[in-house]
Design a protein around this nucleic acid. Sequence first.
RNA 1: GGGAGAAUUCCCGAGGGGCCAAAGGGGGCAGACUGUAAAUCUGUUGCAAAUUGCUUCGAUGGUUCGAAUCCAUCUUCUCCCA
Length: 413
Amino acid sequence: MENIFDLLKARGLVAQSTDEGGVQKLLGSEKVTFYIGFDATADSLHVGHFLQLIVMRHLQKAGHKPIILLGGGTTMIGDPTGKSDMRKMMTKEEIGHNAECFRRQMSKFIAFEDSENAGDNGAIVVNNADWLLDINYMEFLRDIGVCFSVNKMLATDAFKARWERGLSFMELNYMLLQSYDFLHLFRTLNCKMQFGGNDQWSNIISGVDLIRRKEGKEAYGLTFTLLTTREGVKMGKTEKGAVWLDPEKTPPYEFFQYWRNIEDASVKNCMRLLTDIPLADIDAVVENDGPSVNAAKERLAYELTALVHSRGEADKALAAAKSLFGAGSAHADMPTTQLPAEAVTEGGVPVLDLLVACGLAPSKAEGRRLVQQGGISIDDVKITDISQKIAGKDLEKGVIIKKGKKVFHKAML
RNA sequence: GGGAGAAUUCCCGAGGGGCCAAAGGGGGCAGACUGUAAAUCUGUUGCAAAUUGCUUCGAUGGUUCGAAUCCAUCUUCUCCCA
């Protein structure tokens, strides 16, 4: 069987590892228990978590056992890595709720131990609140604290970003806690590897160091490439915020469009990192520039939508996109707003009200601007007059509003 | 504990009694060019019943015909000395 490490490496997922030869040997020779930590700061996973899920999925398929560590305890502090501001603290209830939502979404990617289709390597979920909350401060300092050099910690990249704005003692401790998590899992569950985004590198190696010091045994760490745009900006953010995996927060059609609109330079990379499309195929698909990359983008968007939502949703999103951007604007599956009957006054619904009601403009002033700048079309007719009204009988059969070049919305009564 | 300073719109950052809904940049949105890409150029970017009105410059009170701007108290942050 192919060594999973080689696969990850070939797909460009691996950024750094503590001991490449060791990791490769380990993953090729035994069933390894590994963990990835998730901060439970929101009630849905988003595209930023995508890679972690993909890697877990790859590893589980190869027979390894994932531990999902939910940061119920550490989220109470907040990882300062790469953040320029201190995070606000969260309550236990919020964290618990978020953890539950994560678990539900993750089940699309990996099999949990208690689900029927899991083999002997079903994923388990742990919450570091279970051991961190009861820590005795004195014991912790004497036992774990001694193993850390502040000088060394401050020299790491993780803290450099915070150097100018100041760093509270609480945040400084994040690294110790994450390292302790690894040690704890190593001891109790024989977890030998930790994975994480490349920004977690310092936290991960400090855990590996801690295990070496306390247990005298070797543990491994591996980080994967961060998904960034060509400019180095983290992917997964749009003007509306993160692209979520929860269909309630980011509808499948929007999710599809996010990938469909990705910049040319990222297509190949995203295919390699995020999909199961064989490498040889990727090269073939994306070989030439020019308009043909559009086919590749479509495939990327389709595959990812199918993975996160379902084949059915992906089909619908693809069909909707094709009909909207193609010649005919048959309304397939697109965001739709049902207007209340009383919205129609004599002569119809004013365009500006319509735009606001559909969420296409946050305010009427914004709607006015859109119209004045020629950004709004309804049923393929450009709206030029801000006082125009849409007749009730048109709304009854439904109208398609186009904002800019690629936002489509259907409004009906 | 003592002293000095800071807080402005989505972000950075000017503005130090009326000419301020507040310069400039970033970001966003729209238009042109394109390929549902990138780059570039142009417009725009508090809200509304829009030649006007209303809310907004950390919070609360005050001075004044008039306060982002002056005064008092408070909150938070930064720096210096212990």
